[in-house]
């Protein structure tokens, strides 16, 4: 077992607004407290590092998935009570009224604080998502062994 550092590894499997928000809040909070932070985005979580307004997919199924599973921080909705987008609209409005930092600004804060964002190569292959669908700050795609190496030397690991 590697020596544990003052480091946080987050596995972000979920692509829902609430869970992505929790992920970026934990990541920025840890980075602000001086921790090294690695976020590993897999499956639905890849939506959290996708650019807005970009459709993914190459073949028929991939393109269908890209349409039904829009990525980007403006497209994702809450895990419950989304009701065809109404929930997303309502939550965003309520958070705005209360002055909660919006997701794009939160992700930018994470980037500015040096949070590393690693996409999962296998999920990208399955869902026909390529690097140019991601924000430029996303790192080179990696696999489970790289994530586990980061996790094993981290004092905190989260799976969201």
């Amino acid at each position: 077992m590697a020596e544990r550092k003052n480091k946080l590894t987050l596995v972000v499997l979920s692509g829902d607004l609430d869970k992505v928000m929790a992920s970026y809040i934990i990541a920025t909070g840890a980075a602000a407290a001086g921790m090294e932070v690695v976020m590993f985005f897999t499956f639905w979580g890849l939506k959290a590092i996708q650019r807005d307004g970009v459709f993914t997919g190459k073949g028929l199924f991939g393109k269908m998935l890209g349409v039904m599973n829009r990525g980007g921080l403006n497209a994702i909705g809450p895990s419950r009570l989304n009701m065809g987008g109404m929930g997303r609209w309502m939550f965003k409005l309520m958070m705005k009224q209360k002055g909660v930092t919006q997701l794009p600004e939160l992700r930018q804060a994470a980037i500015d604080l040096g949070v590393q964002m690693l996409p999962c190569q296998m999920s990208m292959d399955v869902m026909e998502i390529t690097r140019d669908h991601f924000i430029p700050e996303a790192a080179e795609p990696v696999g489970v062994a790289t994530m586990l190496e980061h996790a094993s030397e981290s004092s905190i690991q989260f799976f969201i």
Partner: peptide, 11 residues
Amino acid sequence: LCPMPIVKLAQ
């Protein structure tokens, strides 16, 4: 609101 006070403080 959270986490911005500590993010801004860290910066």
